[in-house]
């Protein structure tokens, strides 16, 4: 019973902070409302005894939001949300999309024939997750991992302003790359 109450409270918190993302008027606050929503979701997983998944959600989302906030704000030198700005754009279109998705999901939840639970939860769900991922799905995970890495490398290559010719010269014969900021290794 207590668990159910905590779970409902966390669910409500996740939804409310999610809504707040579009209510607050600063980029930083919007980002951290989104993070709060993720944290509530992670905490809900913890309450369900899915420790690894819950903590992983918290860990990954925190770092992700911290990176995102940099990208959202690094173009602006006006900290502390000095310039209030609206967090919603194209309100009518997004409201329509949101409502449609909501209806589809609700209909799905109530009409899908969910399977009954058989057996009992394992003592260490972390191990179960590991075995599920690293056992039958191993090939898939390896492929996904490589694809993600390739996407990141390709994305950076496409986005970067300076290529190797800028760094190493037209004939790529410079000993040290010509970078505005030197790294810590002698290269």
């Amino acid at each position: 019973m207590t668990e159910l109450l905590v779970l409902s409270a966390l669910g409500a918190a996740a939804v409310c902070t999610g809504v707040l993302v579009f209510v607050v008027d600063s980029m930083a606050r919007a980002t951290f409302c989104l993070l709060a929503s993720f944290l509530a979701t992670g905490a809900a997983l913890l309450v369900m005894d899915l420790h690894y998944l819950g903590l992983l959600t918290i860990l990954m989302m925190t770092i992700e939001m911290a990176i995102m906030v940099v990208f959202m704000i690094m173009l602006m030198m006006n900290p502390a949300g000095l310039m209030p700005m609206t967090m919603v754009h194209n309100t009518k279109g997004s409201a329509a999309v949101g409502a449609t998705v909501f209806v589809v999901l609700v209909v799905g939840i109530w009409t899908v024939d969910w399977p009954e639970r058989t057996g009992s939860p394992p003592a260490d769900p972390t191990r179960q997750v590991g075995e599920a991922i690293m056992g039958p799905q191993m090939l898939l995970m390896i492929v996904v991992g490589v694809v993600l890495l390739a996407t990141m490398v390709a994305g950076i290559t496409l986005a970067t302003h300076r290529g190797r010719y800028d760094r190493f010269g037209p004939d790529l014969d410079r000993g040290r790359p010509d970078d505005p900021v030197r790294g810590g290794l002698p290269r």
Partner: peptide
């Protein structure tokens, strides 16, 4: 201005981005 503070405005920078300058 917000709270009496003038806002930074953007300008081209060293790395070819258009960042706000303070």
């Amino acid at each position: 201005d917000v709270a009496g503070l003038p806002m930074a405005s953007s300008a081209p920078d060293r790395d070819g981005l258009d960042l706000e300058a303070l």
